[in-house]
């Protein structure tokens, strides 16, 4: 029995090691390639890893494309969307959880509709709307459609429902206006849900590609992903792979770093994102 268990553990470790190696190798290889000294041919050396690590490719990538603008754009877009979302989903989530009013179910189904029909699918009509509003090539055009979040409203509705109703009633008797009940009672108690939403939202918008691509046509308004795509497509030959990998890692670095630091939080947040 004991021997069987040990064998079982050994087999699991072996299997997982092999699979995880396959999973990690692309990233490690991209990293290895990106720190190759300029001129050193790709795919040479022990385990195809570079002989003399160098950050030259990162410096070159940084100057070869307007990454500063891209970075700022992405930060503004993610931050702007999140700020407005936190406001809209808190209010709507509260209404759907705790304010019974006629038409509530019908209105809620509109938010479910957004869960079912993501923006990428409705890109054509939304693009035409942005064109009519003369918002093409603005960060606002990228942000506007995301500022109401069906996912967020759904999440916050669940979270608010888990707060005992008596606490709201105690708050109201203690002298709270409705917004004070939200601020002092509900929000402190639903912070985990808000944090989870924030993580998923920022990750999603940091990585979003098609919609920003459609409504922008110059680097001025473009986020990192769209910038990276044009950067990668511009130099699609072997010699430039180290440069492309450096650029790619520059784009992914903040999220990767955040993930490695706060894995648990990321995983539990993404489990909540399964609603759609």
């Amino acid at each position: 029995m004991i021997a069987g268990r040990r064998l079982d553990t050994l087999r699991s470790n072996l299997l997982l090691t092999v699979v995880c190696l396959v999973w990690v190798v692309p990233l490690v290889w991209a990293l290895g390639t990106s720190v190759r000294a300029p001129g050193e041919p790709v795919g040479t050396g022990f385990l195809w890893l570079p002989g003399r690590p160098s950050l030259a490719n990162f410096a070159e990538a940084w100057s070869a494309a307007p990454f500063v603008t891209y970075y700022l754009n992405t930060i503004v877009i993610c931050g702007g969307i999140l700020a407005v979302q936190l406001f809209t989903i808190t209010l709507a989530g509260y209404a759907f959880a705790r304010v019974p009013f006629p038409g509530r179910e019908l209105l809620f189904s509109l938010f479910i509709l957004q869960l079912m029909l993501p923006l990428t699918v409705l890109a054509v009509p939304n693009f035409l709307t942005m064109r009519d509003l003369h918002l093409i090539n603005t960060k606002l055009a990228i942000m506007l459609p995301y500022m109401a979040s069906g996912f967020g409203v759904f999440l916050m509705r669940q979270a608010f429902r888990s707060v005992p109703l008596e606490l709201e009633e105690a708050g109201r008797l203690d002298g709270c206006q409705w917004w004070q009940v939200l601020w002092h009672v509900y929000l402190p108690l639903t912070r985990p849900a808000l944090v989870a939403f924030g993580l998923v939202s920022v990750t999603f918008h940091w990585n979003d590609f098609l919609w920003p691509l459609l409504v922008t046509n110059t680097p001025n308004a473009r986020p990192l992903t769209v910038g990276l795509a044009s950067f990668a497509l511009a130099g699609e030959n072997g010699a430039q792979f180290p440069l492309i990998m450096a650029g790619t890692l520059l784009v992914m670095a903040p999220l990767l770093l955040g993930f490695f630091l706060f894995q648990r939080q990321f995983v539990s947040s993404f489990i909540r994102s399964g609603i759609r």
Binding site: W23, T203, T225, E236, L256, F259, F260
Partner: peptide
Amino acid sequence: FRTALFYPTILPTVGAAAIWLFVYAPGLGL
């Protein structure tokens, strides 16, 4: 193990694709 298996989830698809472009590069790629 869990980290190694989960991390691709949080990567931008475009970035992941750039890496895989390199993985699939004829002759040269991984």
